[in-house]
Amino acid sequence: MTELRKTMALHIGLLLLLLALNWLLPAYHHGNLSRIMVLASYAIGYNILFGYTGLLSLGHAMFFTAGMYGMALTMRHLGWTPAPAILAGLLSGLLLSLVVGFLALRTSGVAFMIVTLMFAQAVFLTVLYFGEYTRGDEGFVIQQAERIFLGIDLSDPNNRYLAALLAFSLCLLFTLWLVRHPFGKTIIAIRENEDRTRMLGYNVFRHKLTAVVISGTISALAGAMYGLLFGYAGATFASVQYSIFPLLWVLLGGAGTILGPFVGTLFMFYLIDLSSEFTTAYMLVAGIVLVALTLFAPHGLMGELRRRLFRWLP
């Protein structure tokens, strides 16, 4: 039981620390952390599929975008308020991941990467094709006055931070619960040895499909929150780049660790932000750091910590 206690202490501790930081951080970093927590939720969603189930998707931007547009389009064209709009976003992500998962899971390995990439590309082009409604690449603003969630003004920095923290906590605690749940143990078993898991009598396809849906829906939540908190929806978020980001964050932080997605997102954000202070060639810095990390910390930051120091980290 002591491991469980340590685990709980660590993660609840982190959430409490993040809560306390709301009142301690200077405005700039306060705003950054709001973003990072939403993006880290996206990475957590990605990690469920990549880190725990062992399926590498190159198309998660479509789920993020489904959430973002499910929320933004219902607000813009149907006049919905944020609460049902977020649900619409979640539902869009859920349906899309169900369909994509059902089709894409017929493949595995590199073919799975390409199929998800292709579906995401089709979603990106669809957003452009229906430019009349989506305003295509330009995107559109979700006005400040519309972003009132059950009476709370989400454009206020404090409310924004707390909303981001709430979403992040939900995702984090959910994954923590999930990996201790039999379902979580099964998808890890699938990652380690799919054939053996199948021989043990598990329905591998159904487990993988469930993982895709959970992962896609969490990504959609992040997308909806991002659009709502920062007041903008645009096709850029559906581009390939935004499918590669969560992969990078998760690999940096440590795939298959609970805290990895957060650590990776935080690290990458500040790497780019800080290096852009002294050079406009910040992509060069990012590139070098990525190469260095693969050479010297192949399991990501949290993965290395787990391997070297804290074997109990989930």
Binding site: Y28, G31, E138, G139, V141, Q144, F230, G234, T236
Partner: peptide
């Protein structure tokens, strides 16, 4: 919030304008 600039300026591409203006 960091540089404490008096104004911001200079954006060209529309999607960057529309993404930044709410903030």
């Amino acid at each position: 919030t960091q540089h404490e600039c008096d104004v911001a300026y200079g954006t060209l591409f529309s999607h960057v304008v529309i993404g930044s203006a709410p903030r």
